[in-house]
Design a binder for these strands. Structure first.
Length: 176
DNA sequence: AGCAAGATCGGT
DNA sequence: CCGATCTTGCTG
């Protein structure tokens, strides 16, 4: 959704924290994407936390691989991956180096579902490794919104085992 | 080299 | 519930 308000870009400081802080903190923040000459603004409505090698639902649960390599690096980088032969998933790296955590962006205003929003916004593998604090085509702004954040279980991780399935690491606002 | 599974989605 | 569609990572 278009948004003309002035926002403050989030830097690596925001992302260099535990994902259980960053994931709820992103609800109500604004995803900004370059679109030709202009910019598009989308309020983030739903996120999920993936928290290190011990988290059996996290891509890092089986150690470092070419795909998840970026998760082991600096916070505030974009982690995108291709799934089910047709969808790109948009994630941001959180926490300090060698602590492989990421936030999955599951919903933005106007688009519910992680595969649908990347398709709508033309986000693909070319965004892998993009730095949210310096990129000129993708970043996050704080525009002062303070939504009520609700939480629930993560979606689509039935393979992870009960204790990880039961974690309430999905965060969302009523705005959907 | 082969293969099973997948942080999804839309149609039955 | 099921198929689409193809990358990834594990096995051998």
């Amino acid at each position: 959704m278009k948004n003309m308000r002035k926002g403050i870009r989030l830097t690596s400081e925001f992302f260099n924290r535990d994902v259980l802080k960053v994931a709820p903190g992103l609800i109500g923040k604004v995803l900004v994407l370059k679109n030709g000459e202009g910019l598009n603004y989308f309020s983030i409505t739903e996120t999920e936390a993936y928290r290190g090698e011990s988290d059996k639902a996290c891509h890092a649960s089986r150690g470092r691989t070419p795909r998840n390599n970026i998760m082991y690096g600096k916070a505030g980088k974009v982690y995108v991956y291709f799934i089910y032969g047709m969808y790109w998933m948009l994630n941001f790296v959180t926490a300090e180096e060698n602590n492989p955590q990421a936030v999955l962006i599951r919903g933005i205003e106007g688009y519910c579902g992680p595969g649908k929003l990347t398709k709508a916004l033309n986000i693909d593998g070319s965004f892998y490794g993009e730095d949210l604090s310096t990129s000129d085509r993708i970043w996050i702004e704080d525009q002062g919104n303070k939504p009520v954040v609700k939480r629930g279980k993560r979606v689509g991780i039935g393979y992870a085992g009960k204790i990880w399935i039961d974690k309430q690491w999905r965060y969302f606002s009523e705005l959907k």
